[in-house]
Simulated scan of single mutants.
Amino acid sequence: MQDEPELTEAGKWYRDRDEWCRHLMGRTYLTDAQKLVGIFIAMHMNRVDNHAKHQQTTIAKDLGIHVDTVKRAIKRLRDDDVALIDREQLQRGRRNRAVNRYRLIFPWS
Rank of each mutant, 00 (worst) to 15 (best):
Q2G: 14
Q2K: 14
Q2M: 14
Q2D: 14
D3H: 12
P5W: 07
P5V: 15
E6V: 15
E6Q: 14
E6P: 00
E6G: 01
L7F: 13
A10R: 15
K12S: 10
W13S: 10
W13T: 14
R15C: 07
D16L: 12
D18W: 07
D18G: 09
D18Q: 13
E19V: 09
W20E: 02
W20P: 01
C21A: 15
R22M: 07
H23S: 08
H23R: 11
L24N: 01
M25T: 05
M25A: 13
M25K: 15
G26A: 11
R27H: 03
Y29D: 15
Y29E: 15
Y29V: 10
D32V: 11
D32N: 13
A33Y: 07
K35M: 12
K35T: 06
K35H: 07
K35L: 08
V37H: 05
G38S: 03
G38W: 01
G38M: 02
I39H: 06
I39M: 14
F40L: 04
I41K: 02
A42I: 03
A42G: 13
M43K: 15
M43C: 09
H44W: 11
M45G: 03
M45P: 04
R47Q: 13
V48Q: 12
V48K: 14
V48Y: 11
D49V: 09
D49N: 08
H51K: 12
H51L: 12
A52D: 08
K53D: 14
K53R: 15
K53A: 04
K53M: 11
H54V: 00
Q55F: 00
Q56W: 04
Q56H: 14
Q56V: 01
T57W: 01
T57E: 11
T57I: 09
T57N: 04
T58L: 08
T58N: 08
T58H: 09
K61N: 10
D62A: 10
G64N: 08
I65F: 04
H66M: 04
H66W: 04
H66G: 05
V67Y: 05
V67C: 06
D68M: 08
D68S: 13
V70N: 00
K71T: 14
R72Q: 13
I74P: 01
I74C: 11
K75R: 12
R76H: 09
R76Y: 05
L77R: 05
R78A: 11
R78K: 15
R78V: 06
D79E: 14
D79K: 09
D79W: 06
D79Q: 12
D80N: 13
D80T: 09
D80K: 13
D81K: 05
V82R: 02
A83R: 15
A83L: 10
A83P: 00
L84R: 01
L84Q: 02
I85E: 03
I85V: 15
I85C: 04
D86T: 12
D86M: 08
R87S: 10
R87E: 15
E88R: 13
E88S: 08
Q89F: 01
Q89L: 04
Q89G: 01
L90M: 09
L90G: 00
L90R: 07
Q91K: 11
R92H: 10
R92L: 06
R92K: 10
R92V: 04
R92D: 10
R94E: 09
R94A: 06
R95Y: 07
N96P: 00
A98G: 01
V99W: 07
V99A: 00
V99Q: 03
N100V: 00
N100A: 09
Y102S: 02
Y102A: 02
L104Y: 03
I105Y: 04
W108T: 05
W108D: 11
W108N: 06
S109M: 06
